[in-house]
């Protein structure tokens, strides 16, 4: 009574395994291999760039050819791409074929869609993702002859929403890890302690009976670990994070 078909089984299994993955690379691989079963060879997922956002920063996942994406960004296709304009009036999933069938496309709109054919993508599916924070994102796989049956669409919709969430989660965790700095070594801490008292590298070398280049090397390492460009800022970060105290 409650047993689903192949589409349901695959998709529920996909979601379950996806939720156990943490590494960005593993998540991407998992998504790409599932989409292959449906005949999608490429996928991209991105948030609609807001005012002032760099388009490249909005991409969560993309394995379309680099030349295609570079050209897309460089020529600002996002403003004219009929698939993107469709999102302004329709926040439900749709295929490229639906757009071609339901709208009279201008020549330039057609040419943007046709450019995807250069890398073998004849049709694609768009899953719009609207979050409570009001942002619109999308998950968009494409391929030569993808399965776009009713059930496949339902499956891709679910795969897209879960994938977007998992990608966002792993990228956020990655960012957080980057801001949490690496701990300083005992020697680096000692050197930074004297930097905090305004000593020069020569003076510190004297105090600690080290050579000046060695002290400079420790200071530079500490600055890198604390993500600080200047010594004074490195001191501030070291105190703030409890690495040294005055």
């Amino acid at each position: 009574m409650f047993n689903g078909d192949e589409y349901a089984k695959r998709t529920l299994d996909f979601v379950e395994r996806l939720q156990q993955l943490e590494r960005y690379e593993d998540i991407c691989r998992h998504i790409a291999s599932e989409l292959e079963w449906f005949g999608f060879s490429c996928v991209s997922s991105w948030s609609m760039p807001g005012p002032g956002d760099e388009p490249a920063d909005c991409i969560l996942l993309n394995n379309r050819p680099k030349e295609y994406v570079d050209r897309y960004i460089e020529r600002n296709y996002v403003l004219r791409d009929p698939v993107v304009t469709e999102l302004r009036r329709n926040l439900q999933p749709f295929s490229w074929g639906d757009v071609r069938a339901n709208r009279d496309l201008t020549k330039s709109e057609k040419s943007i869609m046709d450019e995807a054919r250069e890398f073998g993508a004849n049709d694609g599916f768009i899953v719009p993702i609207v979050t409570l924070s009001g942002s619109v994102s999308l998950f968009s796989p494409c391929g030569a002859d993808p399965n776009l049956s009713q059930r496949a669409r339902a499956a891709i919709e679910l795969i897209g929403m879960y994938s977007f969430q998992a990608l966002q989660r792993s990228l956020l965790a990655h960012k957080r890890q980057e801001t949490a700095h690496m701990p300083l070594s005992p020697r680096e801490r000692e050197v930074m302690h004297w930097v905090a008292f305004g000593k020069t590298d020569e003076e510190i070398a004297d105090i600690l009976s080290l050579s000046t280049p060695t002290v400079t090397w420790h200071v530079e390492n500490a600055k890198r670990k604390l993500d600080a460009f200047r010594r004074t800022y490195a001191v501030v970060r070291a105190i703030r994070s409890g690495e040294i105290s005055l």
Binding site: Y7, Q92, V130, T131, R151, L158, M161
Partner: peptide
């Protein structure tokens, strides 16, 4: 099913019991 992302924002542990199905004549 369009609202699923907002439930995933609430908790990523939200699990589907099946795929989306049309209701009321579909979209």
């Amino acid at each position: 099913s369009v609202a699923l992302p907002t439930y995933l924002e609430l908790t990523p542990r939200t699990m589907p019991l099946g795929l989306p199905h049309p209701y009321g004549g579909g979209r």
